[in-house]
Nucleic acid binder design. Structure first.
Lengths: 342, 342
DNA sequence: CTGAAAGCGCTAACAC
DNA sequence: GTGTTAGCGCTTTCAG
């Protein structure tokens, strides 16, 4: 004999209870809860508000979502919210969404194609009103997005897919200023520590590095590729240090990689920027507290997040797809050699 | 004349369409989609599956949530997902939830009481099936949770509130091993860099530090308090260095603070661990890549996240509230003086 | 094994 | 200003 499980249902009190208690119709309760679309007499409104408070009524979001066809929720699909760049993005998107009354469904894809696809589908079936997608793929599963007819904005996606909104920075330009800065310090052998995507996307940071070198009449330095992570950077750093023609400066395509490179350099008993100068990309908080602090190309993450959310569910929603590019800024700290380390 | 907005409604195809297309009733479609509660003939099932595929049908989660009274979503309330400890927690909670078919609603409270309360309320009205709450408050808004009758688990909350599940580590024990380790290195003047909560909660890490010192017959070292952040740690570090009786070792209550302290020490031209040894708390990834790498008390975040989700929506849900404490492990790296920095 | 139908809580016509 | 009510898409009991 199994004991019947008491459902212990939450939010038992519905708008009907409130209506009864306040002696009005359910429509009126709706009107006061939503502040419209009809006006309610002040006295009635007060009665309803009292009933709501006394009964402890909270609207059922699922019912509302069903009726309205909108969950007032947006989805975020990122590779890994543990990466400082994405954690800041997540926070900023959450803030921007909350500002508009939207909640944030967070999903990590872990650089995994299947997982990303699953996350997109899952979000779609959850009636999210939009998704911001920082894909790990060259060809993200845009089809799923289109099929679901759900607004999306792509973040920093190289190939600006037609029909989709996107926000991003000019990766090539950002890389250029980082490399130019190194060139300004007199370096002529400047390596590139390039992050690898899951797919064979040609990253524009690589192009920027190339452009800067070419513009200065400098030879191409070594390129070493590895994951966009501290570990990846560490491995890349060791390889760079072991090279016959060791570079005197390195441009890393992400702060995380630079952190790893820093470790490799320290372990080799070398110092930054004296033996090897370093600049990187992202402008995450961690880059400010490394030793030495990293000179890095900062992406305006908060602004980008706001633009993304705005495009999705703000006033401008539903407009023709557009690509918004934001400017980067070089944060000059110690790793480039500009400022003595303290 | 305003152009009428075309709603462009997503997921137009409903279970009714599928039923019609497959020549069955809507109930049957439900049965195959959910794998129950009734059995369906193989032939029929195939027809339905085809119809689903061809029509591109995806179930409407809002309708399901309304019917079932469960959104298959859990909420996470943390101070700041930008903090490595919480970002790992968020990722782990997301993974554990996804494993069970639940999605994760992320909210940041930014150490703000009102925001935390708002987040809890908001999650409750969104019919989440549970919330894991890492509060910044001494007295989190448990009332809101109770009123909503929504399962919750508190994370690392000192005062184990009656009637609530909680998961956490033994903060005092963790602090003790970190301080004992410093004592083992021969230090006798060991400072405490203590993080501050919003409220006046007495943190057990402070107690652990005290206990270790007392057990070794050592005098209390200086205590300096500041926010649980890199900046907070930096300020704390500078104060500690300026002290008349400068400590030879510091125990920091979080990795972030230790990172800030490291910077303060570097800037003072001192080295770790030679001039000052350092241990900290959390075991975040960033601690592994600082220079020198931090010896830190690692919290088993993934395990804790799994336990929290399990308590909320797993098989054991609905049981009497319990408090689960997990063991910490000392990760010995370079900042304590054990291992030469490479 | 399959179908009909009630109803989850809410919104917003539409009627008064 | 307020009330009635249809119906959003789904699950599941109950009847065949």
């Amino acid at each position: 004999m199994t004991t019947p499980v008491v459902p212990s249902h939450r939010s038992q009190v519905t708008r009907k209870d409130v209506a009864r208690y306040a002696g009005v119709s359910t429509a009126v309760v709706s009107y006061v809860v939503n502040g419209g679309p009809k006006k309610v007499a002040p006295g009635t409104e007060a009665k309803v508000q009292d009933a709501i408070r006394i009964l402890g009524y909270r609207p059922n979001a699922a019912a509302r979502a069903l009726k309205l066809g909108s969950s007032e929720t947006i989805g975020l699909v990122i590779p890994d919210n543990t990466n400082p760049f994405f954690s800041l993005l997540a926070h900023a998107v959450e803030d921007a969404a909350a500002e508009l009354g939207f909640a944030l469904l967070l999903t990590n894809s872990d650089g995994n194609l299947a997982k990303e696809r699953h996350n997109i589908r899952n979000l779609a079936s959850r009636q999210v009103d939009g998704v911001v997608l920082a894909s790990v793929l060259f060809e993200p599963d845009l089809a799923a997005l289109e099929a679901a007819d759900i607004p999306a904005v792509l973040l920093n996606h190289g190939s600006q897919a037609a029909g989709f909104n996107s926000v991003g920075v000019d990766l090539a330009a950002g890389a250029r200023i980082a490399v130019d800065h190194l060139i300004g310090h007199g370096h002529t052998n400047i390596a590139l520590a390039m992050g690898t995507n899951t797919a064979g996307d040609f990253d524009l940071r690589e192009e920027g590095w190339l452009q800067a070198l070419a513009a200065a009449g400098l030879p191409e330095g070594p390129i070493v590729r590895g994951p966009f992570s501290r570990e990846g950077g560490y491995a890349v750093g060791r390889r760079l240090l072991a090279a016959a023609d060791r570079p005197t400066a390195i441009f890393a395509s992400s702060d995380m990689q630079a952190i790893g490179i820093l470790r490799a350099i320290h372990e080799a008993g070398l110092s930054v920027p004296e033996d090897i100068a370093l600049t990187s990309f992202d402008g995450s908080a961690e880059a400010e507290y490394s030793w030495p602090a990293l000179t890095t190309v900062e992406q305006p993450v908060r602004v980008m997040a706001e633009a993304a959310v705005e495009a999705l569910v703000g006033a401008s929603r539903g407009q023709a797809s557009e690509h918004r590019t934001f400017p980067t800024t070089l944060r000059i700290r110690h790793s480039c050699g500009c400022i003595a380390p303290a």
